[in-house]
Nucleic acid binder design. Structure first.
Lengths: 219, 219
DNA sequence: CTTATTGAAACGAACGTAAGTTATTTTCTT
DNA sequence: AAGAAAATAACTTACGTTCGTTTCAATAAG
């Protein structure tokens, strides 16, 4: 697993639900239906990212989030309901992160810089403190069909973002004009996403990975 | 999911347990302990490949293989025992396939041809009739630690094979000498392995994928 | 008091697993 | 060569556990 990049890579970003530890100093009860919900989602994402979908029990999620299974059912009506929201939030988060990063004026206007920025931001989401994005990438294919279907729209929007990037890069000659964008994009994203499966080898930094991917893309 | 390549890609290969369909026209009972074992492994691999590890039940495996759960326990002593053998066979199979393909005299001696052959054979295993290799790649990270540990030796042997290929290619200038082989190999294999997660888009052939990967690797 | 939130307990279903039984094949004895 | 004995292969049934889920009483806030 690669070292976690110093977040704020490329264009500044803070993790989605940047809530602190929930040690409860006095007893900040109530009016926290929002916080509890997010704590559950974060706990679920953390577990899903590590173990996959089916292997994670609601008892584990509840325990990680600091409540009991019964309480969890006050906020969500089923396990499917939990994973549905993890999937939604995770993918929307990563797409918005990349869009925002690309919109940052500090990013160069050349295709190499823009693609590098997008890849780096994508990876920063995967290895950031929040597990939502990583969980989405990791468990998408393990999830019941009725859960993954509604999220396809968001995925298509994300693919469109990359398609636009790659089309520009192809026009400018940064990418080999003989190669098919519809093949290159999933291959490239696959290479990046598969880093989630790397084990051991902590000595490869996210930056090094990004560099290698960009160089390999370059014509 | 890419189209299944016309098997026998690169160097000839037949799927591991090439047993026919088990429709049972008369009633071919008994006399098949070896066949049953392999049928169970094949059924397990098929299910694991599609659904992951934890989501597959022994009842499903037994049903796919055409026997009952109790009978399954005559051949294997636990679910872990089943997945252990799927993992073992799957990975050994893919490594031997690539080694054999590279040893074929019809493969060119230049680094481009050899790397292309290795990638194509790897992918042919992933999308071949037998699911053992695909299951291995897909569920490795979902499996209990005590199962995945003993298989690491085989994985290292496979990595060594690729390291050797890439070192030669780097020496001859086919690969960019500035890039780190220890990063490129997992990235490349990740890109290839992730094709298992592709859904829809049947219109991309394995050959096209191999071509794109090779071209991207080329300096 | 009312509403929102939690925790304890328990439900039925499905899980991995095991034991015991039946059916087929092989081996051994004569 | 025939038939009994042993071994093999598969099925039936069910145990104990754990899962997702539900119920409901207890507690805290407005």
């Amino acid at each position: 697993m690669p070292r976690i990049a110093p977040i704020n890579a490329c264009a500044g970003r803070e993790p989605h639900g940047a809530r602190g530890v929930k040690v409860a100093v006095p007893k900040p009860k109530f009016k926290q239906t929002r916080d509890t919900r997010e704590a559950v989602l974060s706990a679920a994402a953390k577990n899903f990212r590590e173990k996959g979908y089916a292997a994670v029990t609601l008892r584990e999620i509840a325990k990680t989030a600091g409540l009991t299974t019964g309480s969890l059912y006050y906020h969500f009506k089923s396990k499917e309901d939990v994973v549905r929201e993890v999937l939604d939030q995770g993918h929307i988060f990563i797409r918005l992160a990349v869009e925002k990063a690309l919109a940052d004026p500090r990013v160069g206007t050349d295709d190499r810089s823009r693609i590098r920025c997008a890849i780096k931001t994508h990876m920063a989401c995967l290895f950031g403190d929040d597990s939502l994005s990583a969980a989405n990438i990791r468990i998408f294919s393990q999830v019941p069909a009725q859960v993954k279907y509604p999220t396809l729209a968001s995925r298509h929007a994300y693919e469109a973002l990359w398609r636009s990037l790659f089309q520009d890069a192809k026009a400018s000659g940064f990418l080999d004009p003989n190669l098919d964008i519809e093949v290159m994009i999933p291959l490239m994203l696959g290479a990046v996403n598969w880093t989630l499966e790397w084990s051991g080898s902590d000595d490869v930094s996210v930056d090094a990975i990004v560099d290698h991917v960009v160089t390999m893309l370059e014509a």
